[in-house]
Every structure is written in C-alpha cells, then in structure tokens.
Design a protein around this nucleic acid. Structure first.
Length: 314
DNA sequence: AAGAGCGGCAACCGCATTGCT
DNA sequence: AAGCAATGCGGTTGCCGCTCT
C-alpha cells in the first residue's frame, strides 16, 4: 500500500489519465517546456505528482511518439539489441525512434508469453548459432527457456562470440617484436574478420588453437571500459556472421587510426557510432593481447583516460 | 447472455543514480 | 562528506476489452 514519496500529498490523483488532464499537461509542456517535473503539476493545474506527469508525457503525450504495431524491422532490432544488452529497455528504446522503453518492455513480455505458449517444433539437431527471428519464433518452450536463460545470464561477449566466426580479429604481426624498446601500444592494429567467410575463419581458428587461445571466443570483459556503452545496431541477427571490415589502432598520443583513417579525438564517437561492432570489445581485445607482453600497461586504462574526455558521447 | 480467462498496455512502485546545497 | 530532492529505470500491478465456453 505504499505511496511514492512524491505522491504523498492529499488530493493527488492516481490511475488513468482523463482527456482533460492530458490536455492540461500538453498545453503546459508545449508552452513552457519541461525543466522541473515537480513543478509541473501545480503550474499546469494538475492534481498529479510530477513523476506521474513525466511518465504520462514521455510514454504517451509527447509529439514524436510512435504508436501502433511494431514493424518487423523494429521487432528484429529489439531482439538483436536484447540479445546484447538484456532488459535495458531504455537503451533499446533509444535506438528505436518514437518508441518508449515501457512499450518495448510490454511488447517483449507479451511476445515471450506468446512464444512460450507455442507447441514445440520437431527437435533440431542443434541450436542455431545466430538464430533468425523466424528461428526464434519456432523455438519450443524448452529451447526458448534455454535461449532466454543464456541471454539473461551470459555476459555480452559470450552471446556474441558463441558464433563459430569471430566478429573481429587481431592482427598479431606487430606483436612479435616487443623486446624492441621503441615498440609501443600504438603499433598494434586490430583488424576485424572482414572478408572472411565462416569456413575460412574456422580453418584459421583451428590453426590458431594449436599455438594460442582464440581471442575471440574466450576472453571475459572486465567492465573497465564504459559498461553503459550500447553497441551500435546490428541490422539483424543474420548479419552478425561474419561481421564487416573494421580496423583500429591508437596511433599516437591523442590520435586514433580507425578503418584506415586518422581521426581527431572529437571524431571518435561518431566513428564508434557508425560501427556495427561493440567498440569496447575491440579495445578489450587489444588489452588482452598486450597483457601478455611485459612492460606494457593495459590499454584499457589508456583508453579509459582517453574516452573520459568525451563524457557524454561514449 | 453471462462470466471466466486471457492479453495488452498504462500506470505505479521501489530502488538507483544524479545533482545540488 | 552528507543529506536531500529530483529524475531515471526496470519490475510489477491492475484495469479494460476481447474471446471463449
């Protein structure tokens, strides 16, 4: 029976909003804007708490809201993003213009229920690595449970790297001669597995296993980078394997070379946003590589310091 | 026709985070 | 540094309308 702290006053209305209340709120916000929600009820002549006003505006009244059924593309987007970030609805919503976290959350929950109720299909020989939406749609209760359990419990990289083909690879060529004192972190370059088809990767992968652990499938992200960073969108799950070409290196103090171009610091976040691959995972890969070489501090700390200069962008 | 069951969705609740003093 | 208020977020609740029996 608890009431929220902001709603303790008498006369605070609760429950569904009436058209009159909506009109008052819309009229107030469109003329005054919203800066302090706690002031809104009084100034707009509403007997609601500020929190309720905010919620009503964000989830229902704001003009750029998009209503109606989710398109197939949106659906794929949600599934793809959810496989990466889990139940972080606000993050997911931020990539679906006009959709709210609440709407996506509701959609996801009812979607799950719907799927769980579906009768099990003929048992497949193995679970698909990168399930398409249609494949997910055909999952039976047990498979769906497994899938969602994995998505809910496994960290990001495990989900992504359950693929037999890596999302990116590190070119080791420059790592060999680190006894050279002039060898700095800036000499290391990441290349993604672009251009590699799955078959080519698997051959490569098996070859590497003989000498060194496969970097793409075994590392654990420690969270030293910005753990709130939402990876760029994947168009859909089918496009995840293999991922497209990218390359990246730290060239010199303050400069970053990515995809063959040299970027200023303030261009970095734009580049990051344009990629389909979670950038912090790239950096983590570098970190992993460098940790094995004496005298080189973890790159993540350097990157952390560097990225700290972009407090709002990454 | 009626009421039980169910799904969709708006709104609420409590906790975490942020910002200010 | 601590305390407080505002805001943001995700989980949950409960209402409403539709379908089924």
């Amino acid at each position: 029976m608890g009431h929220h702290s902001c709603c303790n006053q008498q006369k605070v209305r609760r429950g569904l909003w009436s058209p009159e209340e909506d009109e008052k709120l819309v009229r107030y916000i469109t003329t005054h804007g919203y800066g302090c929600w706690s002031e809104v009820p009084e100034k707009a002549g509403l007997q609601r708490c500020g929190k309720s006003c905010r919620l009503r505006w964000i989830n229902y009244l704001r003009p750029d809201i998009r209503r109606g059924r989710f398109t197939q593309e949106e659906e794929k987007m949600i599934i793809s993003l959810h496989s990466i970030v889990g139940n972080r609805w606000a993050h997911i919503a931020s990539h679906l213009p006009g959709r709210t976290d609440n709407e996506i959350k509701n959609y996801w929950n009812s979607w799950i229920k719907k799927k769980i109720r579906k009768p099990p299909p003929p048992a497949p020989t193995s679970l698909p690595v990168s399930p398409s939406i249609d494949q997910i749609n055909s999952y039976g209760p047990n498979q769906l449970d497994t899938l969602h359990h994995e998505l809910a419990t496994k960290p990001l990289q495990e989900t992504l790297f359950s693929s037999p083909c890596p999302l990116f690879m590190i070119e080791n060529n420059d790592l060999v001669d680190c006894s050279n004192t002039s060898c700095t972190r800036s000499d290391y370059v990441i290349h993604e597995a672009g251009g590699l088809n799955t078959e080519a990767w698997q051959m490569n992968h098996h070859h590497e296993q003989a000498s060194a652990p496969a970097v793409a499938s075994s590392f654990g992200y420690s969270g030293t980078m910005d753990s709130d960073y939402l990876p760029p969108l994947l168009d859909n799950l089918e496009n995840m394997v293999p991922i497209q070409v990218q390359s990246c290196s730290i060239e010199e103090e303050g400069e970053v070379a990515v995809a063959g171009q040299s970027l200023e610091r303030n261009e970095l976040s734009e580049w990051v946003d344009s990629q389909r691959c979670p950038s912090f995972l790239l950096w983590e890969q570098v970190d992993r590589q460098l940790n094995g070489h004496e005298g080189l501090p973890p790159v993540s700390s350097t990157m952390e310091a560097m990225l700290a200069s972009y407090p709002s962008s990454l």
